[in-house]
Simulated assay, not measured.
Amino acid sequence: MEKKEIVREKLTLPSEGKKLLLHSCCAPCAGEVMEALIHSEIEFTIYFYNPNIHPRKEYDLRKEENIRFAEKHNIPFIDADYDVDHWFELAKGMENEPEKGIRCTMCFDMRFEKTAEYAAANGFDVISSSLGISRWKNMDQINDCGVRAASRHENMDYWTFNWRKKGGALRMLEISKKERFYMQEYCGCAYSLRDTNRWRVNNGRKKIELGKNYYEE
């Protein structure tokens, strides 16, 4: 069966923005977003700030793949701090909150605030994130956090574009398979890893083995 070709629309930044800083969580999520931006001839830079990702081995796997894909397309890549201790400090009292709950809101707020701060200091007038393309995420929650972060800086917008629509989610998987990206099996944080492994054990499955599974065509 032939793959259905995606018909891409020409995207434009909101409010006549000129320069986009794209927060990226990982290569599988960012791949389709980056491809869509390149097709639309939008100037952008990747900003990798994800101190929530645990443990460090998982963090490095996700970051290095994102760097590889950015370099393949000559996209500038900003490698931000892994201030994991600060993330754990902010997460205190939220250790047992469910996915998509207040801990995730805190996590998005932390990452987007840092993204917006960097954008304001370096001439970017629009920020966005690849996080919203994942069906495991609440897009309204992500957009609310992004808009809130951008609103703290004059003349800055958070782009709430729905990257999942018009075949975006499908193309995300196609790129992941073509590039043989690392297949992430939990959201990223220590508590997500804990809860995913608990679910697996309770359902007769093995715990997650970091760095083992990759997408294949």
Rank of each mutant, 00 (worst) to 15 (best):
M1N: 12
E2P: 14
V7P: 00
K10R: 15
L11M: 15
L13A: 10
P14S: 05
S15V: 04
S15H: 13
L20E: 00
L22D: 00
S24P: 00
C26H: 08
C29M: 08
M34Y: 03
M34F: 05
A36N: 15
L37T: 04
L37S: 05
H39W: 09
E41V: 02
E41G: 04
E43Y: 09
T45Q: 02
Y47E: 10
Y47H: 14
Y47V: 05
F48W: 12
Y49I: 06
R56W: 05
K57G: 00
D60V: 13
D60M: 13
K63G: 01
I67H: 04
I67W: 03
F69T: 10
F69I: 15
A70I: 02
K72Y: 07
I75W: 09
P76D: 01
F77T: 00
I78E: 08
A80M: 08
V84Y: 14
H86N: 14
E89R: 13
A91R: 06
K92Y: 00
G93N: 08
E95W: 03
N96I: 02
P98L: 10
E99W: 08
K100G: 02
T105C: 11
C107M: 06
D109V: 12
A119M: 08
A120G: 07
S128K: 05
L131H: 07
I133M: 08
I133L: 07
W136Y: 15
K137P: 12
M139N: 14
D144F: 10
C145K: 11
V147D: 02
R148N: 10
A149S: 13
S151R: 11
R152G: 11
E154W: 00
M156A: 03
F161T: 09
F161D: 01
W163M: 09
K166H: 15
G168Y: 00
R171M: 11
K177S: 10
R180P: 01
F181D: 07
Y182G: 06
M183G: 01
M183A: 11
M183Q: 15
E185C: 01
Y186I: 07
Y186Q: 05
C187S: 14
G188E: 06
C189W: 00
A190T: 08
A190I: 14
A190Y: 05
A190W: 00
Y191W: 14
L193N: 01
R198W: 04
W199F: 12
N202W: 01
N202G: 02
G204Q: 03
R205T: 00
R205I: 01
K206S: 14
N213P: 00
E216I: 15
E216S: 15
E216T: 15
E217G: 11
